[in-house]
């Protein structure tokens, strides 16, 4: 390892300065703003202490709706995403032909703009008139499926979650596959000789030997799940249905109003602080829950 103070300072300075001034300072400042009643840029700020937090947690049903929606994405969406991603990854890893082709197609939604994908799902997949799903179900004569209203108030949240899972699965398939690739093939051969089926091989070899990758994948999922914003925000029309509010969407709606003139800047910032708290708590919990002795091989 070398050391060269002048080079070190010179090389670190731009990134550190920008990161400090435009990332860390605003992040810290958010805590300060969240203690104010502040109804618009250029307006008076009134110090209210913890009142925004008290209000959020005691008297705001919309906040709780957005919080539980976020939690549903985190837990239910996470469980579904990892189940599907593991299934697809194991299948891709089973020596089939066209592995790279399938992997690329599964990953592809990741590179497409979310705003394009919301249009795709709303108009091309779910829409009762133009949607592929209702029309396909009608084509095969399944009436209940054809009449199912994907975008109605009762169903729209789960419809959105399906779309989000479809987008995210590809990323985790790739990550898990890379973890599987590190596992030496001899382990599987030995297991097969002993007569272990695929199910046993997965729980006995695959999962334990790539536990570190799984842990990272779960942490990455929790971070991205808690800040879900772009998909629900653009999924509906000019007003976002509150059934789709995540904490991120609710923050935006309270701070910038979408098409209604709401400018509760202090209140909105308090939601952001709670999002950060949720990220930290979730990461700690996941790391604790998933801690295992490192397996050597």
């Amino acid at each position: 390892m070398k050391t060269n103070p002048r080079l070190i300072i010179l090389f670190l300075l731009p990134a550190t300065a920008i990161y400090l001034a435009f990332f860390l300072v605003p992040a810290g400042w958010a805590f300060y703003y969240s203690a104010f009643d502040w109804s618009g840029f250029g307006e008076e700020m009134t110090f209210v202490g913890f009142k925004n937090y008290v209000r959020l947690m005691t008297t705001d049903p919309v906040f709780w709706e957005s919080f539980f929606n976020t939690l549903k994405i985190l837990v239910v969406g996470g469980a579904a995403t990892f189940t599907i991603a593991f299934t697809l990854a194991v299948m891709l890893n089973s020596g089939i032909k066209g592995k790279k082709f399938f992997r690329a197609l599964i990953f592809m939604p990741q590179v497409i703009a979310v705003i394009a994908l919301t249009t795709l799902w709303a108009f091309a997949i779910y829409s009762p008139t133009t949607g592929v799903l209702p029309n396909f179900f009608a084509l095969i004569g399944w009436e209940a499926g054809a009449d199912y209203l994907w975008m109605s108030a009762d169903h729209v949240f789960w419809s959105m979650l399906i779309a989000i899972i479809w987008i995210e699965v590809g990323f985790y398939v790739v990550l898990l596959l890379a973890g599987m690739d590190k596992i030496p093939m001899e382990y599987y051969e030995a297991a097969r000789i002993e007569g272990a089926n695929m199910w046993r091989q997965f729980w006995g070899i695959t999962l334990p030997l790539m536990w570190d990758v799984v842990t990272i994948a779960v942490v990455l999922w929790s971070i991205s799940a808690i800040k879900v914003f772009e998909f629900p925000f653009a999924f509906m029309g000019p007003t976002t249905d509150s059934h789709l509010y995540t904490m991120g969407v609710y923050l935006y709606v309270m701070g910038f109003g979408k098409r209604d003139p709401i400018f509760q800047l202090g209140y909105a910032t308090a939601i952001g602080v709670l999002m950060l708290v949720l990220v930290v708590v979730t990461s700690v919990v996941i790391r604790r829950a998933m801690r295992r002795d490192v397996l050597q091989y």
Binding site: F23, P26, A27, A30, Y33, L251, Y252, T269, V273, V280
Partner: peptide, 11 residues
């Protein structure tokens, strides 16, 4: 791990 949404208003 810091949600960009948290930065919006101060930024």
């Amino acid at each position: 791990g810091i949600p960009v949404l948290l930065l919006l208003i101060p930024l």
